[in-house]
Structures are given as C-alpha cells and as structure tokens.
Design a protein around this nucleic acid. Structure first.
Lengths: 189, 189, 189, 189
DNA sequence: TATGAATGAGCCTTCATTCAT
DNA sequence: AATGAATGAAGGCTCATTCAT
C-alpha cells in the first residue's frame, strides 16, 4: 500500500524535532516519529540512515536555518545595542517556535559520540559568538580566555530555561537575560 | 572508600548517584548499579521499588544533604555579601564533588513525570531561594513575579554548565557567575 | 560485458546469478539485484513473482544451459573414457565460470521448500546421470540401488568443494576427483 | 515468572544444534531456539552473547566431543585398516546422531567471518587429518600438496551427503565412501 | 534477607513486496 | 512497462522486573 506522499522529509523532520524536544533522544523511538509523521517506520530509513543520524540532522539543520537569519541581522548597519537585542530576540523565537534543540547536545547521552556532535557544537559556538564579536568586554574579564564561550553558553542555556519555564513572557524573559549579560560588557551597551 | 563498612542501602545510594551522574538516567541500568554496589540486582528491589524511584530518592537525598549544609551557612551571623558568596561556593562544590544532580530534573528524559518530580523541584527551588531571601532586588525587577525563581534556575543551571565546561577553574567560574547575578540586586552587594 | 545490449530479463538473470553465487540466497537482497541490473526493484517483479522464484529460475536456467552443452558431449562419437573426462571438465568449468549453482540446493536455507526445488533437483540428477549411463559398474556395487545417484552427488559436491578450495588447480582437482570416481567402474576406464 | 531450570545451557545447546542443522544459520531465529528450549529469549543471552557466538559455540563444542572419541580410536593398538574403518564409522555416527554440523562452515553466509571460524575449521582439519596420518599415499598423488586436506573434505562432505540422502543405509554408505577413499592409498588398505 | 536466573515487552533496523505515478 | 517510495512484519538484542531458592 505505498502512496506517494508530499513533503515526507519535511514531515519526518518536524515530527522528529518536536518529539526530540518534548521527550529527549532516548525517550523517542522511531515508531513514535513515524506515527507522528503518519508514515511507516521503514520510510524513515529511506531518508535517514538511523536514529542517531536523524537526531544529528535535525539538530544541525535547525541550527543552520537559525544561523542564516542571524547572519542577516549581524550584517545590518545598526548599532551594537540594537544588534544584540535583535539577535537575542531572534534566538529566543527560534528556540521557542522552531524548537531548534538547545546547546545541551553535549548532554545527550545515548547519542553515539562521534565527530559529528563535536562539529555541530563547535559550529553553534562559532556562530553564536558572532553576536558578541564587536562588543567590548569589561577590563575585569579580559583575562578570562573562555569568556566568549561562557557568554554563548549562558545565552543559550538560560534562554532555553526561561522559555521552558515562562513561555508566555518573552519580554520579561529577554529583559532578565540581557541584564545578566551586559554586565560583562563596557558601558556603551 | 570504606565500601565494606557501608550498609547496603548506602552502597546502593552511592553507586546509583555516581552512575547517574556519570552517564545519565537512561544509560545506567540496574545491573550496573548492583555491580558497583557489590550486591545482587534483586536486592536493589528490597530497597527501592523501581529504577524511577531509585533515581528520585538519590536525587532528593543528595539535595537534602546540600540543604542541611546550606542552612548552616544561612544561619550564620555574617553579612549578605559573604552569605551569598559562601552559599554559591558551597553549591559549586556540591555539584562538583558530591554530584548532586542538577536542576535539569525536569529534563531527565525517561523519568516518569509524576508528582514526585514536581515535589522535588519545588523543594529545591524553595531551599535555594533562601540564598536570595534577604537580598534587596533592584526596583527595575520588582514587578517580575518570577524573578526569584529565575535567579535560582540561573544559579543552578549556570553552575552546572560552568563546572561541566571548565572543571578546573572554580574561582573564575564563580566570579563570572556572581557578576551575572548581582546585577539584579541593589547596590549593597 | 555488453550490459546495455542485454534485455531486461537477461540482465536480471545475470545479476541475480552473480550475486547469489557470490553471497548466497539470504545475503542477497532484491535491491542488490536490481542495482546490479540497473533497473528498479519494481521491475524485478514484472519478470519474477518473488525472490524465491527468481532464485529457482536462475538455478534451473543455469543448469539447462549446462545440460545443453553436456548433451552435445554425450552425443559425440568418442569412447567412454574420453566422454567421462570431457563431461567432468565441462561441469568443472560450468561451476567455475558460469557459477551454475551447485547441487546444494537442498541446503539453500531460506528457500521455501516446495515442489519446484524437488523438480530441479530431480532434473539435475537425471541429466548428470547420463554421464555414467553407459559405464559399467563394478559387480561389487551392483546391488546398491542408489549408486548412480551417489555418483552424481559425489561428482557435483566434490567438484564444488575442490573449486572452492583450490580454484587455481583444475588439472589436479580433476585428476583427484576422477580417481575417486573410477573406482566404482569396471576396469575399462 | 522466573523459574530455576535444569540444564538450561544443555537445552539451549541441543535446541540450537538441532535447529541449525535442520534449517541453517539464517533460517533459525533466536525465538525459535528459545521456544524449542522452552525458555525466554532473554535467557539465551545469559548463556551466549549473540547468535553468532551461539552458533560457533555449538559447532566447536560438537566437534570437540567428536575429537575426544576419535582420539581414543586413534590411540588404540589396531591395524590401519581397522583404524580407518572405525574412525569413519564414528564420524558417520557423530554426524548422524549428534548432528555435529558439517565442514560447510565455510559456506555459512551471514556468519560474521572472524578468526573464530577459521580457527574452528583449522581445528577440524587438523583432527580429522589424524585419521590418514599413518596411511601411505599412492606415489601418484605424492606431489599433491593438498591431498590430505582434500581427503578430509571429501570424507566429511560425502558423509554428510550420504547421511542426508540415505539415512537408513549406514553400511552401504560407508562401503561406498571407503571405496572412494582407499583409491588414494597404497595397497595395504 | 540476599541472590541472580528467567522473563518478555520493547526498540532499532532490514528488506521483500506493493502500487501510484 | 518501468519506477522507486512506502509499507510493515520480523529479527537480534536489551534490560527492568520478578521470584524460587
């Protein structure tokens, strides 16, 4: 009973993304995903070679879409303050609506730990870092080699947390987050 | 470690705590735990009715120990600044050494989401909140009903992240964290 | 090989024959075959109703080609010794080059055991038996009702084994085999 | 519903041996084996780490038992003729009753081709060869480096075939086989 | 009370087969 | 007639849990 269906890959992607977000890697099984996508399990494997790959693909693809949008913002001719706020707002929405799975990649146990994961995390870090690249760091933190990395993780991890806890409160959440971030920057922001 | 001096329940506890921390809920199986505790699997079930319960017990117990230590600090007759710093330092060490599993309970996939989890999370929140109870919040955030909760989560989640990423760097990690927290408080700190 | 010159059915045949011989029934899948034949899986099913049938067809067809060649030899006006040697040499080459799958049909696991298999086996037996039909059996074995069948199986099974083990050594292999066979015949050979 | 059962390992062994013999490696599944042994699938894995291992174990163990019996015969103080006949009779019975799977190991597709298999085959060859070790080979075959190996394979493969085809006819089968073998030996036998 | 063998549901993955195009 | 995406049953294996000893 094969049918030719529309947007299968997209449906798998969405189903997988939603489920991985709701329940995490281990708690989602391939049947769940295929059910939500209204396809047969076997069909999943026409598009992704295994669960691990599917997760990784979803993760990377989600982030890539975000990176494209982020690049547009960073290329704009606006001042740093606005850039920061717009970027954070974007990432907030991305995590909220597109459910681009968070930075907790490193924590996804059960995932085969291969280069792919490290690469994805490196890529996320590299891209998000661009948000802070033009911002002047306070003298006090200048000798912290990892400050930029910490800022990236703080941004992502706290955004995820805030969205998770108070999904309704975008404005307040962002205000709270930014306030905690700008303390590491020079006065201009 | 004087393993043979500990009674069975304690041995189970320790083994479970270590393993859950090292590998996460799903990646640990009951055989692993009983092996590390040098008992039979069946014996586990004389003390804990199932894996879920064991995890929850370990989690709660870990935190209870932390809370006791925290209470002592909070009862001390020292100024707020010192209280804050000592408390944060304590929790840092707890997460680092005793591996009291983090706040991400809500994200521990595979855990049956029941009342127990909510209760534990409520308890953690209630206790950690005490750190901030005497500290005056900046006017700017006074109308954020959830500010205290956010502070609690920020504290725990960021500590966990920092320890995870730069386990060697306690001083810098705490400096970084505190700087991000105090921005929400009145000048005195 | 002038692959593109062959019609589809022939391409399927050849691909299937090659693959079944290389890897055995179970280890070959329909996708493999269609890939090697440069057609779509579905097309296979326009020519063969299922994997089982395809295998059986290939098997039977392979043997039929061999039988034709064998008949020519047996029709020749040469003495029995030469007939035997030429026949054995032919079958050796057939198994070696055309990979007409061996007598071990009965052992091809995964094959649905139906009439077809028995028929093919019967046919193989009948045809190969012709090699021995004019040869006089030693008195000693005259009361072994199954001697001819045994000779057939011995011939096929040992040839297959020898080719498998020492593919380079046609001459020695055949010498070894014949020596073991002629012992059942009257002195003339 | 766990019970403590007697001779589980033996039952697994027997069931596996029977099934592998009846249907071959691929056609037997772990559920089949556990069913015939009247145990749960999981129990299989308490004794054998996987299907591959189970097959290999059964195979090796079967042969080892045979080798022990064979050694006893070869150590006896009897003449070569009797030794040969007794050995062949033994192996006949072993293949017939204990179903020690044949030499066709090399043909078991689907089996992970690792050192284990090669080792088993080497061992079988080495042990069966002992049957022929004291027998003088005809001059004619003296320059066939592989003659002994060929004899081993001929013996095993033809015995298996004969048993398979005419299970009732031990005497005739052995007479047929021996006649084909002794042709390679000096007159004494 | 402690043991660990036994259980079997459940998961990932494969692949022969179907059928809409 | 040819295509190949879709199907879903089936297989190997894991592991939380049970219970006879």
């Amino acid at each position: 009973m094969p049918k030719l269906m529309l947007n299968i890959e997209e449906r798998i992607f969405l189903s997988a993304k939603e489920l991985f977000n709701e329940k995490g890697y281990e708690q989602v099984n391939m049947k769940d995903i295929s059910n939500r996508a209204s396809i047969a399990v076997g069909t999943l494997y026409n598009y992704f070679s295994n669960k691990n790959d599917l997760y990784l693909s979803v993760l990377e693809n989600s982030w890539n879409l975000t990176f494209k949008k982020l690049d547009k913002i960073l290329d704009k001719d606006i001042d740093e303050k606005e850039k920061l706020e717009t970027s954070v707002s974007l990432i907030y929405d991305e995590i909220l609506y597109r459910r681009c799975m968070g930075i907790q990649v490193r924590k996804v146990k059960g995932l085969k730990a291969d280069k792919s994961i490290e690469n994805i995390e490196r890529k996320i870090k590299k891209n998000i870092k661009m948000i802070f690249i033009d911002i002047k760091i306070k003298k006090q933190f200048e000798d912290d080699q990892n400050l930029l990395d910490k800022l990236v993780y703080t941004l992502l991890i706290n955004l995820t947390m805030l969205i998770d806890l108070y999904p309704e409160d975008k404005e307040k959440n962002i205000e709270y987050l930014l306030k905690g971030l700008v303390v590491y920057f020079e006065q201009t922001i």
